[in-house]
Nucleic acid binder design. Structure first.
Lengths: 116, 116
DNA sequence: CTGTATCCCGTCTGATACTG
DNA sequence: CAGTATCAGACGGGATACAG
């Protein structure tokens, strides 16, 4: 397995950073932590996301193997999104970053104000 | 200390994600891990970054208190960038994500190809 | 219910050239 | 050496409306 040269433009870490760096992926992943959810459930829980963007996010995550999309042939239609093992394994690393954020965000904001 | 509601648009984690999510901040932080560096050192080590963007990145990180910018009144000019304690404390969490990326990137890429 | 289609704007990023 | 100025293109993201 490659060790990943972070200074290589083809760096593997880029793939992950692009994913967690976007506005909604992390929230989707955290939302799905406790089990499958339907489209509208996600949409309402994650306030402010439009259907288009939510769809884009879900498709990208599905494509990366982070979650699965299961369509039930019913009326009305039902679609469930579930984290894969890969998706669940990302939850830990993300939590570490999230905890750092929560611990230090006030300090960062203080720095920003002082800076002006 | 706040626990941070990740579903709040004002969520503190956003601040951090915006920072580590951008294209160069993480590389700068990793570069500076082993000590201060000068502008051109960073520029050459991080291949592909233009001076404008590198400046933007460094200014933003300085503003957030992740690094300090020290100008030496010399000819030719010398400017050194050094991580603050806050910046160094971010290195751990970032490493966790980076390690995850390195371990799983091949799996992600495989998923992407299968998806097409 | 679960999306898609369109339009649009702001930001992010880069190329290139220039300055103290 | 360490940037700044300017221009331009790509793209993420959002508003709104509509479809299967």
């Amino acid at each position: 397995m490659d060790t990943g040269d972070v200074f290589d433009p083809q760096c593997p870490t880029r793939v992950v950073l692009d994913r967690i760096g976007d506005k909604w992926s992390m929230l989707v992943l955290l939302s799905l932590r406790d089990g499958p959810m339907r489209f509208t459930q996600l949409r309402t829980r994650i306030g402010g996301v439009t259907p288009k963007v939510l769809t884009q996010t879900l498709r990208a995550m599905e494509q990366d193997g982070l979650l699965t999309r299961k369509v039930f042939a019913e009326v009305p239609p039902r679609v469930e999104y579930t984290l894969t093992d890969l998706g669940r394994s990302l939850h830990g690393p993300l939590s570490v970053v999230a905890e750092w954020a929560e611990r230090h965000v006030s300090e960062i904001l203080r720095c920003r104000e002082k800076f002006s």
